[in-house]
Nucleic acid binder design. Structure first.
Lengths: 414, 414
DNA sequence: TCTATTTTTTCGAGCCTCGAAAAAACACTG
DNA sequence: CAGTGTTTTTTCGAGGCTCGAAAAAATAGA
């Protein structure tokens, strides 16, 4: 049931709002915060005094951006990098990457490892993750007092509660509650996120002009994934991370998909599908386990060079993506799209067929107004998204908690 | 930007919460409201005293449900039917229907008219709507002081702001800002809603057990529509009412749809499509303008009787709906489905192929756990939904406003 | 009639936000 | 270089709101 607003909630929410404004706007003055939040100057003054006292915010130098103005110069408020740290863990095909990030969002440490995720046992996979996290946390060079939160991202399906990986193409293992495991191991709150959702989160921070309330991030990689932001909120399914754009049906009974079903968008537009079509192996050919980025780049080069099966493969991918997007647009209306991943670098080969297909669908009404942007490198995006997700959690839950917790936190710092 | 919470918002929100609790639970006592909202008894007591003083709530008789309990009996709080009235206007193919509903949700007046919506001019259509509303408002028999809000529903696409009909299959006219027109004409706040969304709203009130946070209402009528509730919120597109399930693509380049495109789900599952297939007219045959409910019932009867083109037509409809649902489930995960409209009465003919198709999709993982419910009559549902939508608006915006407005309202009643 | 029990109201305390005024910190001016 | 104007930030009292505890109200059972 919906719950009433208690009196203490007021301060908590407004604290969170101030922190969010500072994180969003960089170095806003108290006056600017008052303007964007709609709260009075007195309230902002009181809250920011508290936050500075607790070591969460810091006052910037007043002589920041050339003070040409007449009166008392604005004092920019910033996030105190030492207020907390968070950790990101990104698990992708044969690759594990962690980073420690300070409260202001700067990477202070990182470590990467190659693994053979496709053949590893459940225990080995979990072991590698906990080990790498432990190494970073216990690193004596790291002068971070404590990691306040861990965010994991994995390609595949996670549950709505952000506790577990349910299924992932990078491992035969299923249902690993990574978040619970890490929490139990280190006593640090953790969440398990879908990689494409983190891409969307990152895009929102990178370019809030373009990616604000409604947009679509599509990962064009070995598989096809999607992160969807609607009305300013990350979209998730009712039970899982949802948004499995790659497994919408493009052609009933069509090409064989990595998921074992037939006719999914991914079975035409995933790297393995483009590869399969370029090699003219037939739609029933078993998907290959991996195609290297270099191989895909070669494929794209060939397709650009001459009209042959390679070009046709990209055309088919464009068609599948276009019809898929058309169906998606029928549900949510058109929105800006960011194409991410190695095949986004071949978007020139994909776009014509994609636009042609969209024009045949309900999305076609605004065909020309749909904008596409490309970003070939997904990993940094996923990492950034994880970092922002973890930091936002700290902002909201740790630094803007109920009264009791806030009191003690205040004492421990003051 | 997100806006801070002012001090006055507190009372406003908690007032809204109390009203919502009373509307939801029937005759809750103050103690029960305190329990469901999590607010203290004192707060509930104060707020309900205000609301009773303002004539919004009324105290029920204490001897309501056999007072077997020991102590002071609970006093049920109810909505005062005379506190306000709302009006619903439902515009469907060749049919216009309005109703006046009191604050407690009872219909106090209604009127219906047959029209030829497909051939009417823009002015005539608007004229009929304003005329019927005026007749109901100015009816001397009606002892309702004033209508506080009007909710219109129409088959087709409306804008996100709930101001205008953008496109509708029931008329060649487009972009009619019905809400603005009625507001200008009568000075009463109005909203323009999508019919299927109102079906979903109604289902939520009718059976909150089954249809709570996540469910799908699909209209199987001449066209195919959908109302979607996700995470307890009505789902809408970024620009329009969205949720155009009927125009997701089932087969690229496939059967001719009423919308002029090809291969939409509706081009296989709409009444005209079933009709077309049953008559073996071919997928390119121009959709007929209307098929009567009686004709559809005859068709279903024939299909049940013998294996022929009629049965095959329903099979194809089931397949299209199944693959469409499969794609939808890939995005949002499976959820309970309510099939509404005349073809829902033929769901026995549709279901086998539908389930078979879903099993071939990402939704298939939970194939057996997906439940279908049928309701052949959409009109009462749409009307109910409109009524609840309008009443909820009154609850939230008129009876739980900012402080200034509340003060004056209080005075005028006291 | 008295007592136990449960619901509802009353009342003072504690917060929170707000507006107005004061204080602070600078640029400009002569 | 002191004085003035301007803008930002803080201070302070007022007004509201919710809460907990206690009181009042309303009933069933003894």
């Amino acid at each position: 049931m919906s719950v009433g607003i208690r009196h203490d909630d007021l301060r908590r929410r407004n604290r969170a709002m101030v922190i969010a404004a500072v994180r969003r706007d960089g170095q806003p003055s108290r006056t600017e915060i008052a303007a964007t939040t709609g709260l009075s100057h007195s309230t902002i003054s009181a809250i920011s005094a508290d936050l500075i006292g607790e070591g969460i915010l810091t006052e910037g130098k007043p002589n920041e951006a050339g003070s040409l103005k007449r009166g008392r110069p604005q004092v920019g408020l910033g996030l105190n990098p030492e207020a907390a740290a968070v950790m990101t863990v990104v698990l992708s095909l044969n690759f594990l990457s962690v980073a420690v990030i300070d409260y202001a969002g700067q990477v202070v440490a990182e470590e990467q490892r190659r693994l053979d995720t496709l053949t590893m046992s459940r225990e080995a996979l979990i072991g590698e993750c906990t080990a790498i996290v432990r190494r970073r946390i216990e690193d004596p060079d790291l002068d971070i007092r404590s990691v306040a939160r861990i965010a994991l991202a994995i390609q595949g399906i996670t549950d709505t509660k952000a506790r577990a990986m349910l299924w992932s193409p990078i491992t035969p293992q299923t249902d690993i509650a990574f978040a619970d495991i890490l929490e139990a191991e280190f006593g640090i709150p953790a969440t398990m996120e879908n990689d494409c959702n983190m891409m969307a989160v990152a895009l929102r921070w990178r370019d809030p002009q373009r990616y604000r309330d409604d947009f679509i991030a599509i990962l064009l990689s070995h598989g096809i994934g999607m992160g969807l932001v609607l009305k300013g909120e990350l979209f998730t399914g009712t039970h899982s991370s949802g948004g499995e754009f790659g497994h919408m049906i493009h052609r009933p009974g069509g090409a064989l998909c990595r998921c074992g079903r037939r006719g999914c968008v991914e079975a035409y537009a995933g790297n393995y599908a483009i590869w399969r079509n370029a090699r003219q192996l037939g739609e029933d050919a078993e998907p290959v386990a991996d195609v290297s980025d270099a191989q895909m780049r070669t494929l794209a080069a060939t397709a650009r060079e001459k009209d042959g099966p390679e070009r046709e493969a990209y055309r088919k991918a464009g068609e599948a993506l276009g019809y898929g997007l058309g169906s998606l647009f029928a549900l949510i209306d058109p929105a800006p799209v960011a194409m991410v991943g190695v095949s986004a670098a071949a978007f020139d080969l994909i776009e014509p067929a994609l636009r042609e297909a969209i024009a045949q669908t309900a999305g076609g009404q605004h065909s020309e107004s749909i904008s596409f942007d490309t970003e070939p490198n997904e990993l940094p995006l996923i990492r950034e998204g994880c970092a922002m997700r973890a930091l936002t959690f700290v902002d909201q839950e740790i630094f803007a908690p109920g009264v009791q917790a806030r009191g003690s936190a205040g004492k421990s710092v003051a």
